[in-house]
């Protein structure tokens, strides 16, 4: 589904990713862990098409498309989703209008007609209930005045409505209490299937108790220095990153 080969990325003149390679197949859940500043968020941004992230060399192929030839909206329509670490507040743009615009854009890409307003609002209310986001949050501005946990639930709500093939969750678990963490995990687990894949970027083993990954990777200095199964996360939890020092250094 996603194949990243020897990716080098520069941000504001600084090399952030230095030869990152990663293969993700449909049906898999990958966890990416690593110390602060190792390039975890950059990976999500460069894959989703944020401006200012300069691809120096290497490639990323998603469902047969060269990702870097597509603009951000086309990547999203093709089924790539990034749950933001810090979701953006957009006062004045209603959450409901935003969600409908997104879903309709993806549907249009798939050759489906836009939802009529009534059907969509019903769907949005159902899904927001499933992430325990009260319906009044649909009427507010996008993430406007939402708490950290509410923003993350809103991200998961978007993921559920957009039904992406590949979802990258950038520290969606950070700052969440156990209830919210479970909501996020249930959202992901409900969408796990042979056709979908997930990349979970996280600092903590805790999330991986709820979403059991197939692979765990350690990202350090802009590349993956160690990969393993779910037990690697436990090992990291126990020992930290220091024991990987030679690789990290």
């Amino acid at each position: 589904m996603l194949s990243i080969v020897d990716l080098h990325v520069r941000v504001e003149g600084k090399d952030i990713l230095n030869g990152l390679s990663l293969e993700v197949q449909a049906g898999e859940v990958h966890a990416i862990m690593g110390p602060n500043g190792s390039g975890k968020s950059t990976l999500g941004y460069v894959l989703s098409g944020r401006e200012g992230y300069e691809v120096v060399s290497g490639s990323a192929t998603f469902e047969g498309h060269n990702l870097f030839e597509l603009d951000a909206e086309t990547r999203a329509r093709a089924g790539l989703f990034l749950a933001f670490q810090y979701p953006v507040e957009i006062p004045g743009v209603s959450n409901m209008e935003f969600l409908k615009a997104s879903v309709d854009a993806v549907r249009e890409h798939q050759g489906l007609p836009p939802y009529d307003a009534v059907t969509f609002m019903k769907l949005a209310r159902q899904q927001s209930a499933s992430v325990s986001l009260p319906p009044e949050f649909l009427k507010r501005g996008v993430n406007e005045g939402f708490s950290g946990g509410e923003k993350k639930r809103n991200e998961i709500l978007q993921m559920m409505l957009l039904e992406p093939k590949l979802a990258i969750l950038d520290e969606t678990d950070s700052g969440l209490d156990i209830d919210a963490l479970q909501v996020v995990a249930e959202g992901v687990n409900a969408r796990r299937s042979d056709e979908n894949a997930f990349i979970l970027v996280t600092h903590y083993q805790r999330l991986l108790d709820y979403i059991v990954p197939d692979f765990v990777h350690v990202l350090a200095n802009g590349r993956i220095v160690k990969s393993g199964g779910k037990e690697l996360a436990l090992e990291l939890e126990e020992k930290g990153y220091a024991w990987l020092e030679p690789e990290v250094a």
Partner: peptide
């Protein structure tokens, strides 16, 4: 730019 990117990352035309 960040708001624009956020909307685009959800499939909305620029």
């Amino acid at each position: 730019d960040l708001s624009l990117y956020y909307l685009q990352s959800r499939g909305i035309d620029r």
